[in-house]
């Protein structure tokens, strides 16, 4: 197999608070192939969004990437000068955010916002910019796009707004799009539409997609491979079908059990006991240990990654993988 499109190794992004260091991302490694759809799953505060921002170098102080490497086609991105990083953003790496209400600028027309995104990378005449904007809006399924260019974000529905944001991300046919819970703020029916369209678009353009979500159901419908994050670390990874069928980490198993679709009708949903840990007070060793049914004294030491073929997990007492 050729070298991966994106190779992340031991990435660590820490936030420096007044008297504590919050390790939001603490040694994350994964690879992404061209055109692949990767799901990044975890509870709020697990570090999945910070991982996404780190890839684009969009960490604001007091946060900082303290260690590790992000290579895009062999080119190191960590420590790249701001100007070079900026030239990559939107052209090679793009991002879609959670809430389309807040990402688009409310006082600029759609055309103006798209033109600013185009002008970030090339000189373009106003007329050519409009044509390009209309074209990319049509591609993401906005009907009558040419006529709606001069509309403002508040004149669009939530789903349409998110389509505009996706259009901006797709503008320069980037190699990778990082989508940070882009459907979480939308109605379920719109969610399904956007998922389907997004999947079709990236496969059409050959763009790789990192889909960040707390919703295992959404990710499993989309991604070919899944990473499960907990307290800044990847605790389990592997092909979607395999992880869903036979989770090895007790946390993944707990997440799966708490999906409504898996519960008996009328029965109480099973939940993972306890609360996600706060980064300021992580337990020593395995961060999941206080909530884990399988924990014992061994878990006071941080478990290393166990890799078997395409699967990997970080646990002293993995669940039985069942027949391979």
């Amino acid at each position: 197999m050729s070298a991966p499109l994106l190779a992340v190794r031991d990435l660590a992004t820490h936030f420096f608070a007044r008297n504590a260091v919050l390790k939001a991302v603490d040694g994350v490694s994964f690879t992404l192939d061209a055109g692949e759809i990767l799901g990044l799953v975890g509870e709020s505060g697990s570090g999945k969004s910070v991982t996404g921002y780190s890839l684009l170098g969009l960490i604001d102080p007091p946060g900082r990437i303290v260690a590790g490497s992000v290579k895009l086609q062999g080119r190191e991105l960590v420590g790249l000068p701001t100007a070079e990083l900026r030239a990559l953003r939107g052209r090679r790496l793009a991002m879609v955010f959670q809430d389309p209400m807040t990402t688009l600028n409310p006082v600029l027309t759609i055309a103006a916002q798209i033109r600013l995104a185009i002008a970030a990378h090339e000189r373009v005449s106003a007329r050519a910019g409009r044509a390009r904007a209309a074209e990319v809006l049509t591609r993401v399924g906005i009907p009558d796009a040419a006529r709606r260019l001069d509309a403002y974000p508040h004149q669009f529905s939530g789903g349409m707004r998110q389509r505009v944001a996706i259009a901006v991300a797709l503008l320069n046919r980037p190699d990778v799009i990082i989508a940070d819970e882009p459907t979480t703020a939308l109605d379920v029916s719109i969610q399904a539409q956007i998922l389907t369209e997004m999947k079709a678009l990236v496969s059409e353009l050959g763009t790789a997609l990192i889909w960040i979500s707390h919703d295992l159901a959404v990710v499993s419908a989309l991604a070919s491979r899944i990473l499960v994050m907990y307290a800044g670390r990847i605790v389990e990874q592997g092909p979607t079908a395999s992880v869903l069928r036979a989770p090895r980490h007790p946390y993944t198993s707990g997440l799966l059990d708490s999906l409504p679709a898996r519960a008996e009708p009328g029965a109480m949903l099973r939940q993972i006991p306890g609360l996600p840990p706060t980064l300021a007070a992580l337990p020593p060793g395995c961060a999941f240990q206080p909530r884990c049914p399988r924990a014992d004294s061994l878990c006071g030491m941080a478990p290393q990654v166990t890799l078997t073929g395409v699967r990997g997990w970080r646990c002293h007492h993995p669940l039985d993988g069942g027949p391979p």
């Binding site: 921002y53 939107g90 052209r91 995104a117």
Partner: peptide, 8 residues
Amino acid sequence: KFARASGQ
């Protein structure tokens, strides 16, 4: 943040 992510 979104504007930054598009390279502006």
